Simulated scan of single mutants.
Amino acid sequence: MGASLAPYLNHLPRRKALPALFFMCDESWALAMADATRRRAAGQDPAFSLSFYCGLAVMLWTVWLASTTVGALIGPALGDISRWGFDMAFPAVFFVLLKGMWKGMRCAIPWLVSLLCASLAYHYLPGAAYVPIGAITGIIAIVLMGAKA
């Protein structure tokens, strides 16, 4: 994720870019990329807004910390939270991020290849081999499709 943000951070000195990358998470990355894409399309320079990103990162970090604290305090009293559907929180966030990055079916092919290969590896190989297998097969799909993906 940091590598995909690097072209947008060229205008920043390292003393600002590196701390920004330290606070990067999936959500801040996805929202910052969407903002940078929108700003670039609107002709704004620089496309990456450090103030937008920092505000976003601080809010996400604060909410994450507060939620973790509350969860640690009341979680044991709740028991199995899957009975209320909270186990769907992570997939729901993933699908929202995915929708925000959607650029059409052709661009989704590497995601699909990665998903299928990771799923097969999860079911047939031991340990967490599915993680690098999904990543590597997605990259191979991009290479085989050419730079248009």
Rank of each mutant, 00 (worst) to 15 (best):
P91V: 11
G2N: 13
S114M: 00
A89I: 15
P110I: 04
F95M: 14
I109P: 05
M59S: 15
A17H: 07
V93P: 12
A34M: 15
Y124R: 07
G138I: 00
M88A: 15
G127D: 07
E27P: 00
M59N: 11
Y130L: 09
I140R: 04
P110F: 01
L116S: 10
P7I: 09
G2D: 06
G55L: 10
L12R: 00
C25T: 15
A30F: 03
P7H: 05
L120Q: 01
G146C: 10
F94Q: 11
F94P: 02
T37W: 01
G75W: 14
A3Y: 13
P126N: 13
S49P: 03
G134P: 03
A135G: 12
L120W: 08
T37I: 00
A66L: 13
A141N: 01
G104R: 03
G104M: 07
W61K: 10
A92G: 10
A47Y: 01
C25Y: 07
G146E: 07
T69Y: 01
C25R: 01
V131M: 04
I140G: 05
L21A: 10
A129K: 01
W111C: 03
L73K: 08
A77F: 13
A118V: 04
L120E: 07
D35K: 05
L5D: 05
F86I: 01
L56W: 00
G71W: 04
K148T: 12
I142G: 13
S28D: 06
A141F: 04
S119K: 05
T137N: 03
L120R: 02
L116A: 12
R38S: 14
A149F: 07
C117K: 06
R39I: 14
S114L: 00
T62K: 02
F90Y: 14
L9S: 06
D87I: 15
M105L: 14
L73W: 06
A121M: 00
G104A: 02
L5A: 04
A32S: 13
S28Q: 06
L21W: 03
R15N: 11
D35H: 07
F95T: 13
L116K: 05
T69H: 05
H123D: 09
A57K: 00
S67C: 14
A17P: 06
G138P: 00
D35V: 04
M101I: 12
G138T: 06
D26H: 10
G85R: 06
Y124T: 10
N10L: 12
Y53W: 11
P46R: 09
L125K: 09
K16W: 12
L18R: 14
